[in-house]
């Protein structure tokens, strides 16, 4: 294949994935408001478009035209760089997610359902997820505001702590599939839902989900932006476009961790029964991701926020030992069985 066409294909893939992800982020905000309002017995956004369907568009336009305020005494360079440092890691992880099974062929040009299948896929995602903490920390520091600084510090502590059990929880699926590649991991779970890793790794799945919620700063772990204590945490001083970048990153991260959970535990694009395989794999993938996202929002409507010391104690005294034991048991069982 010509190198020019190859580059064109890659650019096309990136454009499709990014476009898809950004659309999903926009409508996830609407979905969240609608589901929350449903659970709280009210209507939610109804004004813009039928049933408020154009609300994300209106929100985006509003944020775009807002005045860009940089507080006095803020470090301008870091203040503007921080939202980008948060958003880029959130979007870059989608490069290794396998969304479907079959490549699309246009003549002899192959368009794969993933941007890249690198053999350390899951480590790649973890590596960039850990970079995301910088944006939050620096954004909080550069704002020159005590609420933002406290929010940033809390968030850094929380992110570093919950990264450990998150990574350890993923070791289970890695051991079982004997690969770090997300594509190989999906393929190892073929042939019915009883082959999915959630069946043999339920503890790891629960640990992963809890840590993922903590990593994305969602309720009940949204202490970095606890509004009753810290106004809005690390992005208190941000407004307009910069604020919306933080917002995009939060929802992008939600989708990303859901995608990884689907790949590592719920069989990726695999259908639960073989007679259901006529439904395209990408629809299975999306359905699983949507279910996890619904679960996220459901949780937000249900559980109250933890206290900060509870959060830390829970991570270090419960999650981390549990994740370590899970790794140990999985390796022993795997060794005996194979």
């Amino acid at each position: 294949m010509d190198i020019g066409i190859q580059i064109l294909v890659i650019v096309f893939q990136i454009a499709v994935v990014l476009g898809g992800v950004l659309t999903h982020i926009a409508y996830l905000t609407l979905a969240e408001r609608k589901i929350l309002s449903d659970m709280q017995d009210r209507l939610g956004p109804m004004e813009v478009g039928p049933h408020g369907l154009l609300q994300p568009l209106a929100d985006g336009l509003k944020l775009f035209f807002k005045e860009d305020i940089i507080p006095a005494g803020a470090n301008k360079f870091i203040f503007s760089a921080a939202p980008i440092l948060v958003l880029v890691p959130a979007l870059i992880g989608f490069a290794v997610v396998p969304f479907g099974r079959d490549s699309l062929f246009l003549g002899d040009i192959e368009i794969t359902p993933y941007i890249a299948d690198i053999n350390i896929g899951i480590l790649y995602v973890l590596a960039f997820a850990s970079i995301g903490a910088y944006g939050i920390l620096l954004g909080g520091w550069a704002s020159n505001s005590k609420y933002a600084l406290l929010g940033g510090l809390r968030s850094a502590a929380q992110c570093i702590s919950y990264e450990l059990p998150l990574g350890l929880a993923l070791v289970g699926p890695i051991l079982l599939s004997e690969s770090l590649s997300m594509k190989a991991m999906t393929e190892a779970q073929g042939g019915g839902f009883w082959h999915w890793f959630i069946v043999v790794q339920p503890v790891a799945f629960v640990i992963y989900m809890i840590c993922a919620i903590a990593e994305t700063n969602r309720l009940p772990f949204d202490l970095p932006e606890a509004e009753s204590e810290l106004v809005a945490g690390f992005f208190t001083e941000y407004s307009g476009m910069r604020f919306s970048l933080f917002f995009l990153a939060e929802y992008g991260n939600m989708i990303l961790v859901s995608c990884i959970a689907v790949v590592a535990f719920l069989g990726g694009w695999q259908a639960p029964f073989s007679f259901l395989e006529f439904i395209p794999p990408i629809i299975w993938f999306l359905a699983k991701v949507y279910f996890l996202l619904f679960f996220y929002i459901w949780l937000r409507a249900t559980v109250p926020r933890l206290r900060f010391d509870q959060l830390m104690a829970f991570c270090w005294k419960v999650m981390l030992p549990l994740a370590l034991v899970n790794v140990l048991v999985t390796s022993i069982v795997k060794y005996i069985v194979s």
Partner: peptide
């Protein structure tokens, strides 16, 4: 992801 974040912290 870990050491330098702690430094910044």
């Amino acid at each position: 992801g870990a050491i330098l974040v702690l430094y910044l912290f």
